[in-house]
Structures are given as structure tokens and as C-alpha cells.
Amino acid sequence: MNAILLDGSMGLYLQSKIGDLGKYPELTNISHASQVREIHAEYAAAGAQITTSNTFLVSPYRSTLAEYDITQMLMKSLTNALSAGLPIALDIGPLGRLLEPYGELSADDVYAEFAAVISAGAPVADYVLLETFADLREIEIALRAANECCSKPVFVTATFRADGTTYMGATVEQFAACANMCGANVVGFNCTLNPLEAREVFDRFKACTDIPLLVQPNQIEGAGADEFADAMMWYVERGAAYVGGCCGTTPAHIKALGDRIRDAS
């Protein structure tokens, strides 16, 4: 078993250290750079093999609202991530605004947002990680932007409920087909579910794609790092290529998981 270990949550863990993250949490890359670096370092020390940059929310749209320079923000965040000494995944989340006709954004608007972040950030990163998506059209546009604006491997995850649909109605099979068609290098799921709840979702991925799988669920509410790590081994044993944690996971979760992967191999 040689699953590669990613890190755990940034936002919640940072909040536990510094309190309120403010209206634009990405600004912490500048205002609390030392604490952000400390977290990257803690995950590296816990055994993570890839550092995820603190850039989930960074977008041109938000840079206008919060009055930051997008290139400067990306360089600052990626420099923070680099300090951990590991390969870096440039983290990119969904835009938080919807496409036409159910929302206001045109496909071109969406493309421009992702293209700007990827063009500026990917050259400094080792991978692009598109995560927590729900809308198939937004995923497709983000993947197209990643293909056209950089040459780095692309990881893409959507966030599913236990029944294998996103809140926007995409199924595991549709998402995997989209990732395959758009040439994603790694595909998987994150957030929403904990590792005890996501087994069926994982099985459905395995049944419909040969792309290496990434599993990054949330912590198990009311349970500790060991329970999380034990539950994660179910996925490692079944061939998950990359594993890590989402909301509520900490360096302790990553350490426990890393120890188990090492013991098992």
C-alpha cells in the first residue's frame, strides 16, 4: 500500500490558532503569515507529502472586493506553502457564484476567474488541486482552464452526499466521466462526508474510472485522530492513491494516518 499523504484542514485549524479569520480569510496569508507557515510545517512534520496552499478562496472577483492584488496574494500564499519544503498543490475552490441560467455568471466569466488564478499560481506550484466542486459545468470549465493555462498535473474533487450526488445534481459517474474527458490526472471527493460515510461513493468511483483516486473527507464528529485514521485505511486498502483530510482534521489526524500507512506497507 503506497497511498500518498496530503495534508488536513487549513481554515478551521488556523481559526483554532488565531480566532476570527475575518471576511476574507485568504488575507491571513499576509496578516498571519507566520501562523499559516506554522500549519504547513506541522502537516509536513506529521508526514504529509504534499502541501496544499491556503488559496481555496482566492479569485479575481474576491480580489476586487477585498482589494488585494491577485498575483501578489498567490505569490505570498505559495511562498508560505513552499516554506514546508514539500511539493505544493495550488488549491482552488468553486467560485461561490452560479452559472447561467440558474445564476448570473456566463461560462466566459467562470473561465476568466479560474484562468487568472491558474496562470499566475501554477508556475510556482507542482500540482493544481480543484476541490469541493458541485456543479458539473463549473468543473468542466475549471478543468479546461487548468489544461489551457498550465502544464502541471491536475487533481479534481467534488463534494458528494452519501447517495453519490452533489447538491447541484452531479453524480459520481457523471463527475468521473467529465474528469476523464477533460484529462484530469487524479479524481476524487472531499468534504461533506466523514470516512465512515463515504464508502459507497468510493466504490462507485472505483467502478467507473481508472484515474487514480483522491479521498479527503471530514473528521468524524465526536471521534479523534485514531478513529479517523482507522476509517481512512479502508480506502487505502482498496487502492486510494492519495489520501488526506478536510474540515476538522488536524496534523494529529494526518500523523495517525501516515503511521498506519507505514505500518501496513
Binding site: 450526488t165 447538491y167 445534481g169
Partner: peptide, 14 residues
């Protein structure tokens, strides 16, 4: 009942 999702609901509300 998961027969429709957020987009369909938004459009109906509109």
C-alpha cells in the same frame, strides 16, 4: 426526494 437539484429549484423559484 433527490428527484431535482439546486438548479431546477432556483429556476422554479425564479
Amino acid at each position: 426526494n433527490n428527484e431535482i437539484f439546486v438548479p431546477e429549484m432556483l429556476i422554479a423559484a425564479r
